[in-house]
């Protein structure tokens, strides 16, 4: 299989996203011969006792409720055969409803929300499912080019069953008018691959009088042995 041809991932160098220019590796990657016991074919495991009971609910981490549109975001972590990845650690972080991160480097003059930090985590269940309660993040400006705005997104970090499956990505919301202008989203070469990062609004996930629901599945790559 020609791996480069089938890769859904962005290239390292994508000059439209300026920070790639001096940070993208330029040399050819080397694929190591892995033995069955190679450390990269295994993954750290995480346990429920390491997480807070309410880490999955980003709306209850402070004395008051955050401002914004309350949402439920859920989906499954799967392998390429569609099998659930159980006990996978899923970490998320995001801007608040106004598009602001509680990070010293975020200079966007939008209000911080004292009732919203915007970080959560959970472990997937036996069906590979994760679930977060949060608020819909706002779009925010960034310095990449004149009038640059990021579409609303939630950052995701996921562990699989092999360290080679490690994935950090971003989930977007359907119908965002900023997609066409965002070099980070557009850095993914395939249109169908870009669409995989867009969550689906789901009325069945939506809870009456309480929160809108979105579904977003995550598919982790094959381990190098499986791909062979």
């Amino acid at each position: 299989m020609d791996k480069a041809e089938a890769s859904p991932h962005p290239p390292y160098l994508y000059p439209g996203y300026k920070s790639t220019v001096l940070r993208a590796p330029a040399q050819e990657l080397i694929m190591p011969k892995l033995g069955p016991d190679s450390v990269e074919l295994t993954s750290p495991v995480f346990g429920h006792q390491e997480l807070g009971r309410r880490d999955f609910d980003l709306t209850v981490q402070h004395p008051g409720e955050p401002l914004g549109e309350r949402i439920i975001v859920t989906g499954r972590v799967l392998d390429t055969a569609g099998r659930p990845v159980r006990n996978a650690l899923v970490e998320v972080w995001q801007a608040n409803a106004a598009g602001r991160y509680p990070h010293l480097g975020d200079l966007h003059p939008a209000p911080l929300d004292p009732n919203f930090t915007g970080a959560g985590r959970c472990l997937t269940g036996d069906d590979g499912r994760y679930r977060f309660i949060t608020i819909k993040p706002g779009a925010y400006p960034w310095g990449n080019h004149h009038n640059a705005w990021r579409p609303a997104h939630i950052h995701y970090s996921v562990f699989g069953t092999a360290f080679t499956q490690r994935l950090v990505t971003q989930m977007y919301f359907p119908g965002d008018p900023l997609f066409a202008y965002d070099p980070i989203f557009q850095s993914i070469p395939g249109e169908k691959d870009r669409e995989k990062l867009i969550a689906r609004f789901d009325m069945d996930t939506t809870e009456p009088e309480w929160a809108l629901g979105y579904q977003w599945d995550i598919v982790l790559g094959d381990t190098p042995t499986e791909a062979r």
Binding site: S7, P8, P10, S19, W93, H103, D106, H155, Q170, D193
Partner: peptide
């Protein structure tokens, strides 16, 4: 070949992961 793989594409970790 775009879209042939079911795998979720990667995106940058960005600058604001430090609190998470």
């Amino acid at each position: 070949g775009a879209g042939a793989s079911p795998v979720t594409p990667s995106q940058t970790v960005g600058p604001f992961f430090g609190y998470a």
